[in-house]
Simulated assay, not measured.
Amino acid sequence: MKLEDIRREYTKGGLRREMLAQTPVLQFEQWLQQAVEAKFADPTAMVVATVDEHGQPSQRIVLLKHLDDNGFVFFTNTGSRKAQEIKGNNKVCLHFPWQEIERQVIVYGQAKPLSTAAVAKYFLSRPAESQIAAWASQQSRPVSSRKALMETFHSMKAKFSKGEIPLPDFWGGYCVEPSKVEFWQGGEHRLHDRFMYIKQSDGSWEIDRLNP
């Protein structure tokens, strides 16, 4: 197998300036709806990139759980690697890889912690097993075995078997407030269409076409 020989053409459509919504949130909502209608397994899956104190980037896939004019929301254990890196440097990058329809969206912005009320509202909406898993996992820290993890899970399940599962004090969420958002649509002959929304000081958005 020669990796350099693996290629294909991108033929599912183009993107023109007149097709773009006035704001990146509106444009994203349109594309997300189309990804949902295309029946992707995980249309809300996004890569979250953070940087540690040494400048080393790291990435992981999380699910987008809310979107409005303020930004893109996700939840996590506040002791996790990504949360600790955000604490030191809250500039992050999100990437939505919708390969089936030859699209990508890249969001550049700052991750701001959500209020306890907002976190609790979402946490209590999760399935009970997911709430228990949040209590059982010391996210990003070493664990001796799968068996040890499951033992902790079952111990927590027994502990909370008779009442409402409380919000862990180590569980939180973030809203990524965008400063730039790129929309990428694959094109023939590698002449892809790329548009970058750039937030201005008055809150409006400037749109630039980028070379592929």
Rank of each mutant, 00 (worst) to 15 (best):
K112S: 11
E164P: 07
F160N: 08
A111V: 08
A133E: 01
P178V: 12
Q138P: 02
E164L: 12
L94M: 09
S155P: 00
P113I: 15
S161H: 06
Q139S: 04
I101G: 02
Q131C: 04
V119G: 09
G172I: 01
K91Q: 15
K147Q: 14
P168K: 09
W135F: 01
Q110R: 15
A134R: 00
A148Y: 03
R103E: 12
A148S: 10
E151M: 09
R103S: 06
F160M: 10
I106W: 04
Y174R: 05
P168G: 14
G173M: 13
F96H: 06
M156P: 02
Q104Y: 08
L167G: 03
R103V: 02
C93M: 09
N89H: 14
V143D: 13
K159H: 07
H95M: 13
G109H: 05
L114A: 00
Q104M: 10
A134C: 06
M150Q: 13
W135K: 07
H95E: 00
L114I: 04
V119A: 10
P166D: 11
F153E: 03
A117H: 10
Y122K: 12
F153R: 03
P168I: 10
G109P: 03
A128F: 02
G172E: 00
I165F: 08
I106K: 11
K121I: 07
S144P: 01
M150L: 12
G88Y: 06
Y108C: 02
N89P: 06
A136P: 02
S144L: 12
L124R: 08
E177I: 14
Y108H: 09
S140M: 13
N90H: 07
E164C: 06
Y122S: 06
R126D: 03
N89V: 04
A120P: 00
A128Y: 05
K121C: 07
R146G: 07
V176G: 15
K121H: 11
S140L: 11
I86D: 05
H154S: 12
Q99E: 14
L149C: 01
P97W: 02
A136M: 08
A148Q: 10
I165V: 05
T116E: 15
T116W: 05
S125A: 06
K82H: 10
S115G: 07
S115P: 03
W171G: 07
A134F: 00
I106L: 13
S145F: 04
V92Q: 11
V92R: 05
H154E: 15
W171I: 03
